[in-house]
């Protein structure tokens, strides 16, 4: 078990800088999720930690050892790829044991380790199959098995669940969380899905445009987003965010209020507007309305609420739930 430390890590392709100085301290045994929109540099950063992309400048240590320029196989990491990257011409057993066989380990030792890893992932009956003959979830587990058998200090996951359907994704989320608890290893997990980030992470790193926006526990980020970007990225449905004159009227550059932090009433409140649309999700209902001179607003209320499109509705923010930022909203800008 060892931590990972990034000091002013940068990467550029020619004049184009895509990772713009990342400082990050990942503690031993932590489950860290890199999250951000596509193109924010999260996968590149992960691949730099893996050694698959060169670091342009900065310092990267794993377990206290400088590995900035070390070979990928010398870093004590294992990686699960988005595409799984299983060797199509090898059986499951050969896939899992490939690294050991390259290292010239004795056959018996390889077989034993492969069997052990396979057993822990319920893959034993599939050991002689080729990847082509496996389902998505099984391939995913083989990829994890290949990582486990290396006995790494740090596991790297690159959007590992994005090729699975929704129900399988929920199941694999649990399995990976279990794996983390069982092995206690450090894990770094990249995703664009904020639900995965919220449910799995000890610590979330929100990346945007090659920079860290905020680092914190899931509930920290939810309750105290440091920037309008984080505020808009974490939480579903998205926080209502206003800038310009509307925000200045409330004494800030950017103002945000979560749909679930609005209290609706058909009689009175701070803002009023005509309901355009009501989405009924069962337990909850989302009420969309437009506040004249302010903007579009969404509120979450109970599923049985009687609001109908065309009616006028009043909304009031709950005490202490308002977010005020001194930076302009990057989306609106």
């Amino acid at each position: 078990m060892s931590g990972v430390e990034l000091k002013d890590i940068r990467k550029s392709f020619g004049a184009l800088e895509i990772i713009k100085g990342i400082d990050l301290d990942i503690k031993p045994g932590e489950f860290v999720v890199f999250v951000g929109p596509s193109g924010c540099g999260k996968s590149t950063l992960l691949r730099m930690i893996a050694g698959l992309e060169d670091v342009t400048s900065g310092l990267l240590t794993i377990g206290g050892k400088d590995v900035t320029y070390a070979e990928p196989s010398q870093r004590g990491i294992a990686m699960v790829f988005q595409s799984y990257a299983l060797y199509p011409h090898m059986t499951v057993a050969e896939n899992i044991g490939f690294g050991l066989s390259l290292a010239g380990r004795p056959k018996a030792e390889i077989a034993a380790k492969v069997r052990e890893a396979a057993a822990s992932l319920q893959l034993t009956h599939l050991l002689d199959r080729k990847p082509k003959a496996l389902s998505g979830g099984q391939r995913q587990r083989v990829a994890i098995g290949r990582a486990i058998v290396r006995n790494p200090q740090v596991f790297l996951f690159d959007e590992p669940l994005s090729n699975l359907d929704a129900s399988l994704r929920a199941q694999m989320r649990l399995e990976i969380t279990d794996l983390h608890k069982r092995l206690g290893a450090t894990m770094i997990y990249v995703t664009h899905d904020q639900v995965e980030a919220m449910t799995m992470a000890d610590k979330i790193v929100v990346l945007n445009g090659g920079r860290i926006e905020q680092v914190g526990s899931p509930m920290d980020l939810y309750n105290k987003p440091a920037t309008p970007f984080v505020a808009g990225f974490i939480g579903s449905p998205k926080m209502n965010i206003y800038s310009g004159a509307a925000a200045e009227g409330l004494g800030c550059k950017t103002y945000g209020i979560r749909p679930e932090d609005l209290t609706l009433s058909s009689e009175s409140g701070r803002w009023s507007g005509k309901i355009r649309h009501v989405e009924r999700l069962g337990a909850d209902a989302l009420v969309y309305f437009r506040v004249e001179g302010f903007g579009d607003m969404v509120a979450r209320t109970i599923g049985s609420a009687a609001f109908q499109p065309g009616e006028t509705v009043w909304a009031t923010p709950q005490a202490g739930a308002e977010h005020r930022f001194d930076t302009p909203n990057p989306v609106a800008a």
Binding site: K7, D8, G51, D54, S57, L59, T68, Y69, E71
Partner: peptide, 10 residues
């Protein structure tokens, strides 16, 4: 911080 030398990885 400046590294003295940046070894080129193969």
């Amino acid at each position: 911080m400046v590294e003295a030398q940046r070894p080129k990885r193969k």
